[in-house]
């Protein structure tokens, strides 16, 4: 029996409505990456993670559980799970990632903060108010819940008098820059990906990496947000010999990740097709989206080395 669509979407929508995220994790875990960095609370310019990188280890853990029950009789029990989840947070119990996965996601955010500081950007952080953007629920068509959630977000931005938002991933960038204004009527928030900010600031590397890597573009950056040149500019300046796979740039091939919450097997098959394209041009692959990173990693099974772009950039622009 496949995973039941209505109950699965229902659980994610219930979580967003009741617990402010599709996969609720404690606010202190979302903000844990910033511990010790001395980031100011709030401010006109903020680094907004939307909890995406922090959520990924939990999504991975949940998907491991889903893959086990997909096509088994246990999938039929999800409807009872939805009922129970309204009372107690069972999705958090099902998704308990190992500490190493959480540390790896947190490190990416620390890298991004270091890069922005090195480029002279003055920014604050919202800590426990760094709310999830609602991206997955939006994609799944849970529009009423997402609309209510964006009103929450608008309240947070108003509370801290935020004018400029620096985002770290394509899903949050797309939600805040392209979806959020239409849903809230708030059009005066300036939203930029940290990759755009680094290029605008004319970030200069401290050392050359002198290595070859393939670039996997994110669908949303490439086709919706026009973030196509920034990643190339930053990596080329850092001395990376960039290899473009078949289907790159605006015509990039999806990693399959968006299918993960309902169809884990299809997601893995789609990712495997992309891995084949990538490994033809390099054994090292750069990603810029947490969903792409985990989904491609899962399909690659160690055949190629996949790493978030922030790792390369921090080595070139902050170290040495």
């Amino acid at each position: 029996m496949p995973l039941p669509i209505g109950d699965t979407v229902g659980i994610l929508a219930d979580n967003l409505r009741m617990r402010k995220s599709v996969l609720p994790i404690p606010a202190r875990s979302t903000a844990a990456w910033a511990r010790g960095l001395g980031l100011a609370r709030g401010g006109e310019t903020i680094l907004y993670t939307g909890g995406m990188y922090q959520l990924v280890p939990y999504i991975q853990a949940l998907n491991r559980f889903q893959e086990k029950i997909e096509d088994s009789w246990l999938a039929g029990m999800i409807k009872y799970g939805r009922m129970a989840n309204r009372v107690i947070n069972i999705s958090a119990l099902m998704a308990r990632p190992p500490g190493s996965e959480r540390e790896s996601s947190d490190r990416i955010l620390v890298n991004i903060a270091r890069l922005l500081r090195r480029a002279g950007v003055d920014f604050g952080y919202l800590y426990e108010d760094d709310l999830y953007s609602g991206a997955l629920a939006y994609d799944l068509g849970a529009d009423d819940v997402v609309e209510a959630h964006t009103r929450r977000l608008a309240g947070v931005f108003k509370k801290y008098r935020v004018k400029r938002v620096i985002t770290v991933d394509p899903h949050t960038t797309h939600m805040l820059r392209s979806v959020y204004p239409a849903l809230t009527g708030q059009h005066d928030l300036q939203v930029k990906s940290y990759l755009e900010v680094l290029v605008e600031r004319g970030a200069v590397p401290r050392k050359e990496l002198r290595l070859e890597a393939a670039l996997h573009d994110s669908c949303l950056y490439a086709r919706c947000e026009n973030v196509l040149q920034e990643q190339r500019t930053l990596l080329l300046r850092a001395g990376v010999d960039l290899k473009e796979p078949a289907d790159s740039g605006r015509f990039t091939l999806c990693c399959g990740g968006p299918a993960e919450s309902l169809f884990p097997k299809k997601a893995r098959e789609t990712a495997a097709k992309r891995v084949e394209q990538l490994k033809k041009v390099s054994g090292r692959v750069v990603t810029m989206c947490p969903i792409c990173l985990v989904n491609l990693r899962k399909a690659a099974g160690g055949e190629i080395q996949l790493e978030d772009i922030s790792g390369y950039l921090v080595r070139a622009y902050c170290e040495g």
């Binding site: 669908c219 919706c224 015509f251 999806c254 399959g256 968006p258 299918a259 309902l262």
Partner: peptide, 17 residues
């Protein structure tokens, strides 16, 4: 065909083509 509706990746490769 509800499964097909939710299987779409919303990747927009079709849109740009």
């Amino acid at each position: 065909n509800v499964q097909a509706v939710y299987s779409c990746l919303l990747c927009r490769l079709c849109e740009v083509n």
